[in-house]
Amino acid sequence: MSAAPAAASAASAGRRQYDLGFARWVYQHVEGGDKVAMCMQCGMCSGSCPIGTAMDHGPRKLFMMIRAGMKEAVLTSNTIWNCTQCYNCVVRCPRKVPVTAILQSLATVAVKEGYAPTQSTPKFSKAFWLSVARFGRTDERLVTALYYFSHGLKEGIRRALENLPIALRMIKAGRMHLGLPHRAKGAADLRAILAKAEDIERAERAGGKPS
């Protein structure tokens, strides 16, 4: 988002921020972002969303905000984080807008842009990613532990203790194992692939693309 104007002064004056290049940037850099231009603001997506009332804007309004250039408001919106990826909206959208992919990709962009989301969804995503990238698999214990302790030591201990009885019952029932995390067969290959992908991404960013 190279063209993003300095936010501080206007934001402190309580005015809305408009970045007129934002829509174009989204069309080019967000997965499925070009399809935002297809949206006809019918409301089918937000009306179909099972957690529609738990979203500040919902997909339809968010897409209008993108087109209006409301970068700050879009990237700090809880809509991009609260999506459960149920795909209700995608199957019903009359314009075939890939709503779910766009929301997900916007969340990734928001993190890269340094927007700190207020909810814990990204913490869980990070824990999930760590396990998958390292072992090629999700390990329930690792993911939950990482997630719990990402809220701080005290909160981590509290949540761990709270869930201990469940964990014990799962172990007893053979639903959770003790010992090292399971590994996928090609975990090492996967790590190499991811490293290569990161290289490419870094090179692209250095190549003058908007960060």
Partner: peptide, 11 residues
């Protein structure tokens, strides 16, 4: 009927 009023954003 279930949906979103796109003017008021009421669900």
């Amino acid at each position: 009927l279930h949906g979103e009023d796109t003017v008021s954003r009421e669900i």
